[in-house]
Design a protein around this nucleic acid. Sequence first.
DNA 1: TCTGGGGTCCTAGGACCC
DNA 2: TCTGGGGTCCTAGGACCC
Length: 408
Amino acid sequence: MTRTILLIDMNAFFASVEQAMNPALRGKPIIVCGRGRTVVTTASYEARVFGVKTGMNLYQAKQACPQVIAVEGDMSRYIDASHNIQRIAREFTDQVEMFSIDECFLDVSKTCRNEVDPQNIARAIKHTIREKLGVTCSIGIGPNKVVAKIASKMQKPDGLIEIREKDIPVLFALMAVQKLQGVGVGRHISEKLMSMGITTAGQLGNTPLEKLMHHFGIMGYRLKRIGEGKDDSPVDSSGGNELIKSVGHSHTFPRDTRDISIIRSYMMMLTEKVGLRLREYGLMGKTVYCTIRFGDFTSWGAQQGLKEHIRQNREIFFVAEQILARAFPLSKAVRLVGLSISDLKPRDTQQFLLKEMEKDTTLAEAVDDINKKYGVFTIKASSVILSEKFGIRPSCGMVSKQALKIKV
DNA sequence: TCTGGGGTCCTAGGACCC
DNA sequence: TCTGGGGTCCTAGGACCC
């Protein structure tokens, strides 16, 4: 059965939301970024004209566009906007999958079987989003999710492209493999494909499966399907039923360091951020993973599986410290430390019966409550105060998809 | 001029057990 | 002393995504 899938892809989403909320930013080149040694998360189209791109550092952005306005991102605003987009999408079909904070798949096959032109649906969605939220989007239409996604990237901003099944062979024959970025063909794979003489999507689809399997293993099968413009994956409208698999944070130091006390205090701060979110989500984890990025951008990582699930800051920190100890003595200065916890399960309420745990939990949750009410780190561990002495400020976590899972 | 932060999935190798 | 094969679990690392 032929399907009709739409992908709504928001244009310069974070920057557009900031401009919609603050008239003083409209029509101006702006970038949304973090703090410290940060990069551009999103550049407005006015900034892109000057060559400002995602991933540039602030210096590069200012060089390219001296008048660019840097705005510190506020994730909660983007999550709100994302929910609003989802609500609008549901006015058109109940088959809606929030794919990321700024992308949304719709399966409108049923509607289109009644002679409704999918382009009319797309135009109505674009109009509603612009009217209600003051931001624009590009919509791609295709017979499946992969093709819809490719179509959505073909015209930006404010685009609308439909790729019909019969158009795929001609279109893909001309499409460079780099254009498949975003559907599972990243930089490494496309470079390898090019070195094999496969330069277009069409050539990828025509390459014998055995050859692709030989070079890419089981991935070869998926690559061939992408090259053929085929994809059976359904639009998953189950929403927040997906489980969160891991919760983590990382932080880049203002300056590279070998000082164990600095590294340790950052790790304590990360522990508190991870622990806070774990408790917020009502989860506990059984595997702790620590990572270090060195000044030369090489990295080290190690994990520790546990006998029991944990959720308290001091438990997480105890394990993190043991893992971190394996990285010493350090051969190079450290740029970033990261901490994440996985192997998650919902909080076991029975454990509350244990008095010791109860006390600890009550304390941690009281701290969480106060921090939620009066701002993160109103109450903080001594290590965090120490962190601040070194010029560290806790940043807002870029939670994206997880926040959507929780809040929807 | 160096290059953020949040995730997911997959693979490969070693340990261990039967 | 040398020899299996299969399965599972754990760990490290890579690729990809927004």
